[in-house]
Design a protein around this nucleic acid. Structure first.
Lengths: 205, 205
DNA sequence: TTATGGTTTAACCATTTGGTTAACAAATGT
DNA sequence: ACATTTGTTAACCAAATGGTTAAACCATAA
C-alpha cells in the first residue's frame, strides 16, 4: 500500500534536463526526445515519471517560479526601508540572473502563452503580495521620507528597470552594438545606476 | 518576361493572418493550417506565395520590426531636447501598444529564440542607432541641463520603463491582482508617471 | 473561341512527435 | 531461493504537420 517513490536520482536528472530544454525553447519548441537525450535516459521514462509533456512542463514551470518568488518577496515583505529594499534588490538581481539566465524570459513567455495556467499558479503559497509594500510606501510618503508616489507604480518601475534588460538582451545588444562582454559590463554598471536612479527620483531632499 | 506579380489581395490576407497567428503563438506554436484558415484560403497557397513557414515567418517578423523601429528612432534621432523626447516617447507608447498589443513580446521572444537571425536584421536600413542620442545626452550634461548620466544607461532605462509592463502583462496583473480594466488604468496613469519619474531623476534643479 | 499563364484547390506524402506497450532488468521483501 | 514490485528499454503507433503535386479554375490576349 506504500505509494510509489520513484528513483529520486532519475527524477532529478529529468527535471534538470527538462528545465534546460523548456527554458531555452519554450513549451512549443521543446521536444521530449531532446529532454530524454539531455537527461541521458529513454524517452519512455519521461512518461513513466511525469505522464505527459504538459505535466512535465508544469513541474518545471512551478519550480522556476518558486525560484523567482523569493526574489520578489525580498522587496515586498522585508522589514527594511524602501531605500534599502531598492538597493538590495537591484544589487542582488544581477547575480541571480547569472545563475538563471533564461528564467525571467521563460516565465514571461509562458505566462503570456497560457495566461489561464498562470492564473492557477497564483493560488499557491508563497505567491508574492503587494499589500505590505504599498502600505510601507504610503507610510514613508506620509513621514516625509519619500516624495508623493504611488506604491504600485513604484513596484512596476523597480521590476521593469531590473528585469527588462535581461529579457530583451538580444534586442539591446543589437541596438547598442554590444559584444557579450560589453553587455555584461553594462549590467554590472547598472547595479549602482538603477538604484541611484530610483532613489534620486523618489527620495525627498 | 514580366515577373510574377502574385495576387496582391491574397498576399495581404496571408500576411495579415500570419501576423496574427505568429505574434500570438510564436514560430514554434504557429500552425500553417491555422494561418490558412485565418486567411480563408487553402494551405497550399501559403507555400505558393511564401515557399516555406520559415520565409513566411521572416516576412512577418521584418514587417513587425519595421513598425517598432520608427518608434525608437523618434527617441533617438529627433531634434527636440532629451526632456521632450522622454515625454513624447512615453506618452506615445501606450497608444502604439493598444494598436499592436502582441508586437514587443513577439520581437523579444523571437530574437531570443534565434539571435542569429535577428543579427541579420540589424543590417537593414532604418535600424535604430544610438550615436546621436548618446552625444545629445553628453551635450546636455555638459550644458548643465542634466545631471551627469550615461546615455546608454538612460536609453535602457527609458525603454525598460515603457516596454516591460506590456511584455510582462500577465505577470504584473497577477502580482497586483488587477482586472483587465485595472491594468489599462495603471498604464494610463503610467503615461505621466514614467516621464515625471525619469525627468525627476535626471534633470538638474 | 481558344490558347496561355497565373491562381487555387483537394488529395497526397514523408517525417516528426507525443505517447503506449510489452518485455526485460534490478531491487526488495518473504 | 523465489515472487513481487519498481525501473528501464526498444519497438511500435496514431495523429499532426510542413510540404508537394496534379488537376482544375479563371482571367485575358490572340
Amino acid at each position: 500500500m506504500a505509494e510509489k517513490k520513484f528513483n529520486q536520482d532519475t527524477e532529478k536528472k529529468i527535471l534538470e534536463a527538462a528545465k534546460e530544454v523548456f527554458q531555452q525553447k519554450g513549451m512549443d519548441g521543446a521536444r521530449m526526445q531532446e529532454i530524454a537525450n539531455a537527461a541521458g535516459i529513454n524517452k519512455a521514462m519521461l512518461h513513466y515519471y511525469f505522464r505527459s509533456k504538459q505535466l512535465l512542463f508544469e513541474a518545471v514551470f512551478k519550480n522556476a517560479f518558486s525560484l523567482l518568488s523569493p526574489q520578489l518577496n525580498k522587496v515586498l515583505n522585508d522589514d527594511s526601508s524602501i531605500e534599502e529594499k531598492v538597493k538590495s534588490f537591484t544589487h542582488n538581481y544581477i547575480s541571480f540572473m547569472k545563475k538563471h539566465p533564461y528564467l525571467p524570459n521563460f516565465i514571461i513567455q509562458e505566462s503570456n502563452r497560457n495566461p489561464a495556467f498562470f492564473e492557477m499558479i497564483q493560488d499557491s503559497k508563497g505567491f508574492p503580495s503587494l499589500d505590505k509594500f504599498k502600505k510601507q510606501v504610503a507610510q514613508e510618503v506620509e513621514e516625509g521620507i519619500l516624495r508623493p508616489i504611488d506604491g504600485e507604480q513604484l513596484f512596476v518601475t523597480i521590476v521593469s528597470l531590473n528585469i527588462f534588460p535581461f529579457v530583451a538582451k538580444p534586442l539591446i545588444r543589437g541596438f547598442m552594438k554590444l559584444g557579450v562582454d560589453d553587455f555584461e559590463q553594462l549590467m554590472e554598471q547598472r547595479k549602482t545606476f538603477v538604484s541611484e536612479f530610483i532613489i534620486n527620483s523618489i527620495k525627498k531632499l
